[in-house]
């Protein structure tokens, strides 16, 4: 039935539907902006908007990696745990006297390696991504608790660059927001302009055909899960700097916020379709909800309910469009 509709859709509605697909999330975000700013005009204060960008950056970074993973038809539940473990390891290195910036780089690479373990389990071990990353999530969480003994790691010193990384401003813009935007630009180019990005879409579109076309499917997947781990660790570094400590339970359920951002951005969970720009918007929608509801004085208990409802509405609207 599906193919019948797809095959015969007239050009004009095709064009329209791709336009709404591209603009849908953006329109949603604008609508949200309007509603929140009517209810509380303070929302539009530049200071608050910059604050919003900073709040969004951690989830957005994780969600960017998740976008690649979901495009290939996979899922990565371990990102929150990778964030925690790499943060703890980074903090450990800093406490033991390593230069904080070098520790962050090593921490990110370790995060990338943790992600590659996921990729290897999925490709070489032929495990379902859900199961593989569920298992590693538990392992990485456990290792974090083992390493930290369940206590926060503090005493990270006064290194200026390290402090700036999570808390600072550059030309009046929060550094985490700059990190997010630069990362976005790099990933956008990778996804839309390089063979690697094309392959990510190809694998999600038809894995068998990709393999037969000579694409090294296992290698691409391992790299993508590695990227997801690396970005989770980068988000972790921001969090560590911000809190000036590594928390053993940091990043709990961050994977769900990241998945929500990807889905709100219009990326299909079955793979092959979606855009990283959408994910950025999706992360902003979630951030605006959090920030806006806070400003309106809505209790965090209700905030959860509202977030869930927004996700359902977004997916239902998406369904309607493609039906």
């Amino acid at each position: 039935m599906k193919s019948v509709n797809e095959g015969t859709q007239p050009l004009k509605t095709n064009y329209l539907s791709t336009m709404t697909q591209k603009l849908g999330p953006l329109l949603g975000l604008l609508l949200l902006f309007v509603i929140v700013s009517i209810l509380n005009p303070n929302f539009l204060e530049p200071l608050n908007l910059l604050n919003l960008l900073r709040q969004v950056s951690i989830n957005a970074l994780i969600a960017f990696g998740m976008t690649f993973v979901i495009l290939t038809g996979g899922i990565d539940l371990s990102v929150g745990a990778i964030l925690a473990l790499s943060s703890a390891l980074t903090a450990g290195m800093i406490v033991s006297g390593m230069d904080p910036m070098i520790a962050i780089i090593i921490g990110c690479l370790l995060g990338g390696m943790m992600g590659m373990v996921n990729g290897l389990l999925i490709t070489k071990g032929k495990m379902a991504p859900f199961i593989a990353t569920l298992a590693t999530m538990t392992i990485f969480r456990g290792l974090t608790l083992v390493y930290t003994g369940g206590n926060p790691i503090t005493g990270l010193g006064e290194n200026v660059l390290f402090q700036l990384f999570g808390k600072g401003y550059f030309l009046g813009i929060p550094v985490p927001a700059i990190t997010m935007m630069v990362t976005f630009a790099v990933l956008y180019i990778i996804l839309h302009k390089t063979p690697f990005g094309r392959k990510a879409y190809a694998i999600g579109g038809n894995e068998k055909a990709s393999l037969i076309s000579g694409i090294k499917v296992p290698r691409v997947k391992v790299m993508i899960y590695g990227l997801s781990g690396l970005l989770a660790a980068l988000a972790g570094a921001i969090l560590t700097s911000r809190l000036n400590s590594a928390q053993p339970t940091a990043g709990t359920s961050y994977e769900l916020d990241a998945i929500a951002a990807v889905v709100l951005g219009g990326t299909s969970l079955t793979g092959g379709k979606g855009r990283i720009f959408g994910t950025l918007i999706g992360a902003l929608i979630i951030g605006t909800l959090n920030n806006g509801l806070n400003m309106l004085g809505v209790s965090s208990f209700y905030q959860m309910v509202v977030k869930g409802v927004v996700i359902i509405i977004a997916v239902l609207l998406d369904r309607k469009k493609t039906a």
Partner: peptide, 17 residues
């Protein structure tokens, strides 16, 4: 099932290898 990525354009399919 094995030859094409149906959601890809002609161009994207042809240059895969």
């Amino acid at each position: 099932d094995e030859g094409l990525i149906l959601d890809f354009s002609i161009k994207e399919n042809m240059v895969l290898p």
